[in-house]
Computed example of a mutant assay.
Amino acid sequence: MVDVNGIRLHIAEEGSGPLVVLLHGFPESWHSWQHQFGPLAAAGFHVVAPDQRGYGSSDHPADVEAYSIFHLVGDVVALIRELGEETAFVVGHDWGAPVAWHTALFRPDLVRGVAGLSVPPPFRGEQPPLRTMDRRFGGHFYWNYFDRPGVADAEFGRDPRTALRKFFTMASAEGAGTGEIRQPLVDPERGWLADMPDPEKLPQWFTEADLDALTESFAHGFTGALNWYRNLDRNWELSAPWQGAVVTPPALYVYGDRDLVPAFPGTPELIERLPALMPNLVREPLRLAGCGHWTQQERPDEVNAALLDFLTSLS
């Protein structure tokens, strides 16, 4: 447990050397990086993965506004300092990727290199994201469902293990299947889980022990994690000074071709343009064939190889 930015964070760590901060997404915990600790530590890096605020054994502030992008980046900046370092590599998956990208955007002086899995670098749109998706999908996009106070919290909290089992299967390559990737739309009256298949068995890469650890990490409920989504429009307002700005530290982007996030409206076009938009993207975006949303868990060997190549080239 470490004190940072006015809260306490639980961290897992291994190894010594240049600091690599690994940031998980939703609905996850530090455990989602279990396959990265050993290889990165063996290569000479100090690997640290926190339960981010609102998750796991870390603090869960009650105020919705305590989950803005400035708070999330502030936690990373303070964590780097608390660990006695001046700079770090920052790697994020899913929601952890925007935190990593924004850390590099807001504090490039602290970031030796930044890598994002699933979610590409942030380019601030012309309109607030929640409002945009609400208009586009008639209030059925899952961000808008999550924005309703207490609703998704109650739905997922009734049976966290079943909710997590459904989520992890639905967003995996196995759940996506081979056809067109569908947008994650929710009937706000029925909830998301009602129409989400409950698998007879877990994906091969996700064990019952993994599900046990994940379920335990949500013993405090889902509200803290969902509060990240409830700040999407607020983050858009707060980030106005960075309109048109780009991430300048060396960068790596990795995604799966069966991941629902890179299929969001406008995202495929953004990914195609990244090499022109990102001045220090070290290579073309790495597209993993047959990989779903849980990038570093579904394809750990390929992700580890890409990360090690990226990190060692900058060390």
Rank of each mutant, 00 (worst) to 15 (best):
R230S: 10
F206M: 12
A251I: 01
P285R: 01
A251C: 15
W192M: 11
L193V: 10
R234E: 09
N227Q: 06
P279Q: 09
Y253G: 00
Q183I: 13
D210M: 05
D195I: 05
A263C: 15
L238E: 11
V282P: 06
M196V: 15
D257L: 02
L311W: 01
L202K: 01
G179N: 12
L274E: 02
G292H: 02
L308H: 10
L252C: 06
T215Q: 08
D210V: 09
D212W: 09
W192Q: 13
A263D: 07
P265K: 13
A305Y: 06
T267M: 13
D233P: 03
P262L: 14
R287E: 05
T178E: 09
R299H: 14
N304L: 14
P197Y: 14
A225E: 07
F264L: 06
E284K: 01
F218C: 04
E284P: 01
L211Y: 08
P241T: 09
T295H: 04
W205Y: 03
M278L: 15
L307G: 02
T207I: 02
L232K: 00
A276N: 13
V186I: 13
N231P: 02
N231T: 01
G177F: 01
E208D: 14
T295G: 11
I181M: 04
C291F: 02
D210S: 12
L238D: 11
S239Q: 12
D301C: 03
K201C: 15
P197M: 13
P203S: 04
H220D: 12
L274K: 07
A176R: 00
G266H: 08
G177D: 12
E189K: 15
V254C: 00
E216D: 09
E269Q: 06
D257E: 02
M196L: 10
S217K: 04
A219Y: 06
T223S: 10
W228P: 07
L226G: 06
D301A: 13
H220P: 00
D233F: 15
L274N: 00
T178N: 14
P265N: 15
P241W: 02
T178K: 01
W205F: 06
D198P: 11
R234H: 02
M196D: 05
T223D: 12
L238S: 07
G256L: 06
L311G: 03
L286V: 06
T248D: 11
L202R: 01
A209D: 15
A245G: 12
W236P: 07
T312C: 01
L281E: 05
L281R: 03
W242Q: 15
A251H: 04
V261S: 12
I181G: 05
A263E: 10
G256E: 03
L308M: 12
L314R: 09
P250D: 15
D198Q: 15
N304T: 15
R190E: 11
A219K: 05
